[in-house]
Design a protein around this nucleic acid. Structure first.
Length: 159
DNA sequence: GCCAACGTTGGC
DNA sequence: GCCAACGTTGGC
């Protein structure tokens, strides 16, 4: 089982939108970068775990944990002329943009901010810090558990 | 709102 | 296939 990070702008679609969605699930539409598409199409598998990252906002941070529930889906927005993500060149019999479905598992008690990650010597290799524009990224197993540990055990308990 | 990084497009 | 122009991302 592998671990990933998905970025979303919270003004457009936040982790909390996902928790409120039917079945706490959504098809991850709108990715229009080939490198990110290739990861979605070829690498991510059902039952993989995903960090939900909020980008382009006041406090960029990992805010929740999701699970992959379906793979190999044609992104429906590519065929919708009304969508911002419409792609007239995508052939319905051979769709260009393939994506996954994810399900919200839980919000982190304490979001792990980009600032936190930059300061943490265990996280310096993260793609988020080095290849920051890629919207679908792999997370190493050690990074995954390190971040979860920070999120639960940093003295900021809210329950 | 600025701008650096970087992906995409298209002329040659 | 190079590369300049252009567009987008996303932190600040």
């Amino acid at each position: 089982m592998n671990h990933w990070l998905l970025k979303s702008e919270p003004d457009v679609f936040s982790y909390y939108h996902l928790e409120a969605a039917p079945g706490r699930r959504t098809v991850w539409d709108g990715v229009r970068n080939y490198q990110a598409r290739n990861i979605l199409r070829d690498e991510i598998q059902v039952a993989d775990l995903v960090f939900f990252y909020h980008s382009s906002c006041k406090e960029p941070a990992i805010v929740g944990v999701c699970r992959v529930t379906r793979t190999g889906l044609a992104d429906p927005s590519q065929f919708d002329p009304a969508s911002d993500y419409f792609d007239a060149k995508s052939d319905p019999t051979n769709p260009r943009w393939i994506t996954i479905e994810v399900e919200a598992l839980r919000a982190l008690k304490h979001p792990i901010t980009l600032k936190d990650m930059r300061k943490d010597s265990a996280l310096q290799e993260m793609a988020l810090l080095n290849r920051s524009r890629l919207s679908v990224q792999p997370i190493r197993a050690e990074e995954w558990s390190h971040i979860l540990h920070l999120a639960a055990d940093d003295g900021h308990f809210h329950e």
